[in-house]
Nucleic acid binder design. Structure first.
Length: 366
DNA sequence: CAGCTGCTAAACAATG
DNA sequence: TCATTGTTTAGCAGCT
């Protein structure tokens, strides 16, 4: 089923000609079976103490080519673009713990990453810290992060509240108006879609909310911009409690990765097989129905279809060739590395370290 | 200044 | 009945 934005509720009081991030269309294009996605510079700070010494060493080991050295860390192949942004270690606003967990940011795990116990503990640890100032993130971003951080990529309103309170204790003591704002955002923003719960498993009232795949890149962009602004104005805006230094040691792996237009290659590579299997599992576990009173309500199957049609819509930073029998990662200079090789490399600890040089070789000249 | 975005408050209906 | 959820409207501030 084609995702039709025109089928979205048209009752929004906002003009339909919005030009903001939540009304923009996905910016990827497809030509000749090739998915071309926009590239923009992003840097993510690295948590030094979140890496094992060996991993950290490999991460920081400089490539002879001083570019796109690729690392395999905790199930991810990551192309760290030299060590240019190690200075950003001090930036505690990184959201890489989210993409580590759920592909939120453009670092794609080759395999679904089991939530790290480290992360689990971080949540509770962080949530017990003292109240902080208001997070710089918009409600849309908060909702986005909450949903993306959920195992099924869908949450009821109540759980969204809980996630926000858990990660941004500011809202623990804030007046209840913010909950209204959350609901307001969910209803108003085209970025979020309501899904009816599986009646057989329904506990509690209300629907589940998910991120509309079409708007995911835009949401990511907003997060990226907020992150960027936040990084550059860390002296102006108090960092969210979650990222404060006191709780930094409980964060999961954070990697220093800079993504630039010229270094699209080799970034991290999303395994479509993984994606599709995730989606199928996702779909199998969801039985969603159209509600009689809300014809716009989508089914999870529809959402999954959209994601399958554009499995990389959430990566936004890689190119992938689809062939009948092979999928190739597009590396610099039209070099290709098939995913099977990547997977083998991933499974082999030693080969993982070698993967960096392999990709470096494949991306030679950069 | 206009337009847009985001936040907040409020009213109201539907639902469990 | 009540609390929660979802929708809608309105106004305001900040930014471009």
């Amino acid at each position: 089923m084609e995702f039709d934005t025109h089928s979205l509720p048209s009752s929004s009081p906002y003009p339909t000609s919005q030009t903001g991030p939540f009304s923009s269309s996905p910016q990827h294009t497809s030509t000749n079976g090739r998915l071309s996605l926009p590239l923009s510079p992003i840097s993510f700070p690295l948590s030094p103490n979140s890496l094992s010494p060996a991993t950290a060493e490999s991460t920081y080991s400089s490539s002879p080519l001083d570019c796109s050295s690729t690392q395999v860390i905790e199930g991810q192949i990551i192309s760290s673009v030299s060590s240019t942004n190690i200075s950003d270690q001090d930036d505690l606003t990184c959201l890489s713990w989210l993409h580590q967990r759920c592909n939120l940011l453009p670092l794609q795990p080759l395999h679904k990453v089991t939530p790290l116990p480290q992360f689990e503990s971080s949540v509770s640890t962080c949530s017990t810290s003292s109240a902080s100032s208001k997070p710089p993130y918009s409600f849309s971003s908060l909702i986005f992060m909450a949903i993306e951080d959920s195992p099924g990529k869908k949450l009821p309103v109540k759980d969204i509240y809980e996630w926000i309170v858990k990660h941004f204790p500011y809202y623990k003591t804030a007046t209840g108006g913010w909950r209204n704002s959350v609901r307001h955002n969910l209803s108003l923003s085209k970025s979020f879609r309501r899904i009816q719960r599986d009646k057989s498993q329904s506990v509690g009232k209300g629907s589940l909310w998910c991120v509309c795949p079409e708007y995911r890149p835009a949401l990511l962009e907003v997060l990226r911009k907020t992150h960027s602004y936040h990084s550059n104005n860390s002296n102006l805006i108090k960092k969210p409690e979650l990222f404060e230094e006191s709780s930094y040691d409980c964060l999961p792996i954070c990697d220093s990765v800079e993504i630039t237009d010229s270094l699209s290659h080799g970034l991290l590579l999303s395994n479509p097989q993984t994606l599709s299997s995730e989606n199928s599992t996702f779909a199998e576990n969801q039985t969603c129905h159209l509600t009689p009173d809300h014809e716009e309500l989508v089914t999870m199957e529809e959402v999954c279809e959209e994601m399958e049609k554009d499995p990389l819509s959430d990566s936004g930073y890689i190119e992938l060739h689809y062939y009948h029998t092979h999928e190739y990662l597009v590396l610099p200079g039209d070099h290709q590395l098939d995913l099977e090789t990547v997977e083998i490399l991933q499974l082999d600890a030693e080969a993982q370290e070698a993967a960096g040089s392999l990709l470096d070789l494949a991306g030679g000249g950069y």
